[in-house]
Nucleic acid binder design. Structure first.
Length: 105
DNA sequence: AATGTGACTACCC
DNA sequence: AGGGTAGCCACAT
């Protein structure tokens, strides 16, 4: 079963506004802590279909995983700030404060 | 049909 | 401390 991909989608969709989650975190909650890449793929593929909050998914370091060259970088940062997720120095998100603890499953 | 690649991470040397 | 590798898996070529 592609339960993994499916769970990934649901988990991402379940991230509350004002909070963020890392790829590895989602992958771990979905069942495989090594499926971080799958998470990114799901983001690309399913955002348009499931309207996933892709901007709430960031890298393990608390940084946006998009090159600054791409428009998505600024876009994501802006969306997060609007939701209440503030960036520290170096455009880094304080995971200890904003990281989603999705233990409710 | 096979091979390579990617919004990633954690582990091992 | 820092660089290389393995593991996930759909999609492009």
């Amino acid at each position: 079963m592609q339960e993994l991909s499916l769970r990934i989608i649901e988990l991402i969709a379940a991230i509350p506004a004002g909070q963020v989650a890392t790829y590895g975190q989602i992958a771990a909650m979905a069942g495989n802590h090594r499926a971080a890449r799958q998470v990114s793929r799901v983001l690309h593929t399913c955002t348009s279909k499931y309207q996933l909050p892709w901007h709430r998914v960031i890298g393990a370091a608390g940084k946006i995983s998009i090159p600054k060259d791409q428009p998505g970088y600024t876009k994501q940062k802006k969306k997060l700030e609007e939701e209440g997720v503030l960036f520290g120095l170096g455009d880094t998100i304080d995971l200890n404060q904003y990281r989603w603890s999705g233990h409710n499953k």
